[in-house]
């Protein structure tokens, strides 16, 4: 039963026909989001986050698997699902022919409000989002931060059960980003269920109750930020990139503090619960073997080490 779940997806797949055959954007993704939860989909660009949001919001047809929002099937009951969701897309999807206030007003009317109610609701939301003085502005006159706030306000006009936000702070300056985080926290405090995608670690860490780390169209891990950090990414990751020969891997593995060692051509990576001295020992070993160290880094336990541990790749924002 999915009675208490706002979102439930199981075995969700999406493939697009491409020049080299079918390209799979999402490959068997499953997740469950409870009502009132602030849930994050964290992954690098191209991980399948937007396609997943597209399927959950009925805009992309799943190739296989099923997904439900508020217990309604996104494919079979698309119109009913659309009534219960608000969507803030990554790109500007405001109606450029209309003013800011009209964007909200007509959205309200699309969702069944009468003309007067829609106008009142638009006014309330613009006031709430600090946009009242921009009510008569045209969309192209807004700054990036204002644009996002208008889009969020518009998504809330019909009081949706679930709010979807696709990379809401991408491209925003730090000040607007912080402002938007406040807005989202405020919504969560009022019990709004939110699913947000981000490739911004700090954002995921700051806002989300639970996270699904996704890469290449699959969920790699799903838990609270703290649990992920304490289990999957509990170790410090020390990386040395070198040139000019081969590392003495046996010596690395013999290091007392190295819990796990991963080596690829020109790179050695050590996962250590207690990282004291690991970096200097690695550099010393390299020097002994006559290698040139090109780059050396140490990552403290964080979402970044979670991602590194799960995928073996660094997370590039």
């Amino acid at each position: 039963m999915t009675g208490n779940l706002a979102i439930h997806a199981d075995g969700l797949r999406k493939s697009y026909p491409g020049p080299g055959g079918e390209a799979e954007a999402v490959r068997g993704l499953g997740l469950s989001v409870a009502k009132g939860e602030f849930f994050g989909l964290l992954g690098p660009n191209g991980a399948g986050k937007s396609t997943t949001i597209g399927m959950l919001t009925t805009m992309v047809r799943p190739t296989a698997g099923r997904a439900e929002v508020c217990g309604l099937d996104v494919a079979a009951d698309a119109v009913a699902v659309k009534r219960r969701i608000g969507v803030v897309a990554q790109d500007n999807t405001l109606d450029i022919e209309l003013t800011v206030a009209e964007n909200l007003e007509f959205r309200g009317r699309y969702f069944g409000l009468g003309r007067r109610d829609a106008r009142a609701r638009a006014r309330d939301l613009l006031t709430l989002f600090g946009l009242f003085d921009r009510a008569r502005a045209r969309v192209f006159e807004l700054s990036g931060g204002q644009l996002k706030r208008v889009m969020i306000a518009r998504a809330l006009v019909h009081r949706p059960d679930v709010l979807f936000l696709d990379e809401p702070t991408a491209g925003l300056d730090p000040r607007s980003r912080l402002h938007l985080w406040d807005v989202l926290r405020g919504l969560q405090a009022k019990g709004q269920t939110i699913l947000l995608t981000t490739h911004h670690m700090e954002e995921a860490e700051t806002l989300c109750d639970r996270l699904a780390v996704i890469d290449q169209g699959r969920v790699l891990a799903c838990d609270s930020v703290r649990a992920l950090r304490e289990t999957v990414g509990a170790e410090t990751v020390v990386t040395v990139v070198y040139e000019g020969g081969a590392f003495d891997l046996a010596a690395v593995r013999a290091m007392a503090r190295a819990d796990r060692v991963e080596a690829t051509d020109g790179q050695v990576r050590v996962f250590a619960g207690d990282p004291d001295g690991v970096l200097s020992d690695l550099v010393a070993l390299a020097a002994k073997a006559g290698l040139t160290v090109v780059d050396a880094s140490q990552l403290a336990p964080s979402l970044e080490t979670v991602f590194l541990t799960l995928t073996g790749r660094e997370f590039r924002e």
């Binding site: 919001t57 805009m59 119109v79 009913a80 659309k82 009534r83 969701i85 969507v87 897309a89 990554q90 790109d91 500007n92 999807t93 405001l94 109606d95 959205r107 699309y110 969702f111 069944g112």
Partner: peptide, 11 residues
């Protein structure tokens, strides 16, 4: 990208 969604998300 996605401009049609303004109307397509209407119920």
């Amino acid at each position: 990208p996605g401009a049609i969604e303004d109307r397509a998300l209407a119920p």
